[in-house]
Design a protein around this nucleic acid. Structure first.
Lengths: 129, 129
DNA sequence: TTTATAAAGCAACAAAGTTGCGATAATTTA
DNA sequence: TAAATTATCGCAACTTTGTTGCTTTATAAA
């Protein structure tokens, strides 16, 4: 089995995600990374971090993929909390406390879920008043 | 205001979505359309159908956008039912009966939501026994 | 019919993601 | 501490997906 290594680029990506209050896309991470490493490297780092369960993925309603640092202490099976995707500022935030409840036919086996709410975040809905 | 027209291509796209039991991506629709119309035309047709609320959009967990014919009789504000995305056969199906319930902080204004469950569909989980 | 214009086709472009391969550097081990 | 191993990186090339502008075609109303 492959032993994962700590590299400057990997550390930087994880740091960026740790500092960020919102979920970031590959492009947003790239902007912050600048010339520290190649575009392709960021893709590969994100893959590894996902594999190691250090970050997780959410899908925006417009189809863009965003990454978030996992806040939970230990690896979990399913990241079953909600995300909020603001239609105005396009920020995606974790709503750790919002957990959907649902009933699903027993013949479906659920391994993962994505629950994304979209609309106006507190900042942007304030602006609209 | 623009008056929407019925064209062969538009009718064909809607027919494909009507016949399909699963949600289809642009690429999947294109495969079925063949040479009937251009790739770009399909994008524009899908935009119009979305606008007319004849179809709706769901996002797969891998970030691919899929389209489904709306089954509801009348236009609705929010398509708040769940979708199931199979990790094996990659089919996306509507779970009309599965409606998530959730509590969200009052300062968020929800306009739309996407609730996608992922795992093995009945067909594929049967195969694994 | 004629006419207005929505929609289609085509080409060109932009953005996002992937792959292969030789070079580099983080760990392991001697 | 140096050498060996191999995970990771950089770069170039490519694929896929989605967008835009402009001319042509054809739908539906007058």
């Amino acid at each position: 089995m492959k032993v994962s290594r700590n590299t400057a680029a990997k550390t930087a990506v994880l740091e960026i995600l740790t500092q960020s209050k919102t979920a970031l896309s590959h492009t947003e991470i790239q902007k912050q990374i600048g010339t520290l490493c190649d575009r392709v490297t960021i893709y590969r780092i994100l893959d590894r971090l996902l594999n190691d369960d250090l970050i997780h993925k959410t899908i925006n309603l417009d189809g863009t993929i965003k990454y978030v640092k996992c806040r939970h202490a230990h690896p979990v099976q399913i990241h079953n909390h909600a995300h909020f995707s603001c239609q105005k500022c396009h920020e995606v935030t974790c709503l750790e406390s919002v957990k959907p409840s649902y009933l699903i036919p027993h013949n479906y086996k659920v391994h993962d879920l994505n629950f994304t709410l979209s609309g106006l975040c507190p900042n942007c809905s304030f602006d609209q008043i």
